[in-house]
Design a protein around this nucleic acid. Structure first.
Lengths: 212, 212
DNA sequence: GCAAATTAATGATTTATTCAAG
DNA sequence: CTTGAATAAATCATTAATTTGC
């Protein structure tokens, strides 16, 4: 835009201060009448339109969230980086020992901890080492050589997960896995929860509540 | 269910520890094959089915979010309660003074700060006092008696906002202000953003990027 | 100092996702 | 399952900060 003013609203400092204050005390998505009020009042301090107020709250909210998310992600990454291999090992061992002492009612353990410990870093078939710290991925399960229990089911999978941040995680996993599952899984496995026949909800027990 | 076991899966502590660890490092919504792997591996520690794994992640994720939200709400509430009236006053005054000194390029101020300060607590027409702290609401704007600038636009609104928590706020504001606004606002005001004609995006300049 | 060049902020739009009603 | 309202996310675009070479 050439004549008149600039092509976009440029809030005066007073307007900004007040908007920020309103945001701080909780306003996030003002409705029409609120926007009208705000606009009217802020016009005291300079040219302003309703859309400016609307957009300002939209953007401020979004960028607040963004900042928060970035902080959290950075923190997570740090935590995970600082979580060195031997700490994980110790943690795992500790739990195993603990459980050894307290949870003997259901199961018997035929494997030894040296094996478990080893399996955290070593691929038993290839002897290729990867540390959690360097690879950014993590092997959680004991692998192979566990005798009866393990061989009974032929468990030999290696389980690796990407150590990516939450945001990406959430994004890439948004698919209806249930339909996918039905295609992928061998039909014999009673894998999927047996659903009761869908009946119409003629008389809902109670109204759907918003979670807080 | 009476014979066999209990009617629902009761995770062993090992299973729980591993599930929690997997959750901690980022797994949220495992897909079919992931669930198969997890189930197979966890069956080493006790009876378990795929649906158990599926439901566990579903529930854990949901309850995590819930917890987070509650914490945030509580914090917000606390912050707002601790924000005493006189602090707000000082803050406001401070900014006004600051702006007095640094922002004279755009506007002229014909009202004095004693008035502004006063207006924070006093309704000029009724002399009835309310503190922010006691009423849970907040008056941000100078009121009346501002001479030229104010009378020029006939600004005399009193602006009060509910000091409720985020959740409630969000609830009551769910309406498209744009359509509403068009109905409510006097037609003369160039209030709504002038949209350029929409053209089809036949050849997107570049792929859409994900935010990090 | 200062003005072009570069970068960071942020106002404005568009696109995608979510949620619920029909 | 479809649709509409509402909102969040992503992106575009302009302005302010900042840097840089003189």
């Amino acid at each position: 835009m050439s004549r008149g003013g600039s092509s976009r609203w440029c809030p005066t400092q007073e307007q900004l201060v007040i908007l920020e204050e309103m945001y701080r005390v909780g306003i996030r998505t003002p409705n029409a009448s609120q926007i009208q009020h705000i606009t009217a009042q802020l016009s005291f301090y300079g040219k302003i339109e309703g859309k400016n107020v609307f957009y300002w709250f939209q953007n401020h909210k979004a960028r607040d969230r963004q900042k928060l998310r970035r902080r959290l992600n950075k923190q997570l990454q740090l935590q995970q980086q600082q979580y060195h291999y031997h700490q994980l090992c110790n943690h795992y061992l500790h739990h195993q020992l603990h459980l050894m002492n307290h949870n003997h009612n259901n199961h018997h353990y035929s494997h030894d901890f040296a094996m478990d410990h080893q399996s955290l870093v070593t691929d038993s078939s290839s002897s290729q080492h990867r540390s959690f710290y360097n690879s950014g991925s993590l092997a959680l399960f004991p692998q192979g050589g566990a005798g009866e229990a393990s061989s009974k089911q032929g468990i030999d999978y290696k389980w690796k997960i990407d150590n990516t941040e939450e945001g990406v995680m959430e994004k890439t996993m948004k698919q209806d896995w249930r339909t996918k599952t039905m295609m992928e899984v061998s039909p014999g496995a009673s894998y999927w929860p047996t659903r009761t026949l869908e009946t119409l909800d003629l008389f809902p027990i109670r109204e759907r509540l918003k979670q807080v």
